[in-house]
């Protein structure tokens, strides 16, 4: 397993297949995974698509056009007020680093998983680009 270079006071995460390394500071990932800011319009598509983002399977959100929302996880309404962009990124990349026993899957991690189906093995749930789009969209959810 290749490990990223260290930065003082930070906890870099080992790179995995299809997953680039990133640096964690506290409960946040300050740097974009792609080096650029995501597109909130594409992010909305991902969040509300139950086969891509999967978010609405468990979460409720301020999306009247999305039927059959979940009730297992916090309402996404106001997520952009509750969390900074860097905190949102951490929670999507690997929320278990913030809440160890969370049911939320890590969207950008391919290790410490068991019995992954062959077609998903070594692949994160979302790509770095998709995660940046989702982060950009969630940051726009300011209404509480």
């Amino acid at each position: 397993m290749a490990c990223a270079a260290t930065v003082a006071l930070a906890a870099p995460v080992c790179a995995q297949n299809d997953v680039k390394s990133y640096e964690v500071r506290g409960d946040a990932i300050p740097q974009s995974l792609t080096g650029t800011t995501g597109d909130p319009t594409r992010g909305r598509e991902i969040v509300t698509n139950r086969f891509v983002g999967l978010c609405m399977l468990c979460h409720t959100g301020p999306f009247p056009d999305v039927p059959q929302q979940g009730t297992l996880a916090p309402d996404l309404k106001g997520a952009g007020t509750r969390w900074s962009v860097a905190q949102l990124r951490m929670r999507i990349v690997d929320s278990s680093r913030v809440v160890p026993d969370t049911i939320m899957p890590a969207y950008y991690r391919t290790d410490h998983l068991q019995r992954v189906a062959p077609q998903f093995r070594g692949k994160p749930v979302l790509t770095a680009e998709q995660i940046e789009d989702v982060v950009a969209f969630l940051a726009t959810l300011k209404e509480n």
Binding site: I103, A106, Q114, R115, V116, F120, V125
Partner: peptide, 16 residues
Amino acid sequence: QRQGQLNLSCAQCHDQ
């Protein structure tokens, strides 16, 4: 046992 890409166990949904 937590398993799969979504890292869920049966118990997490059906017990908890």
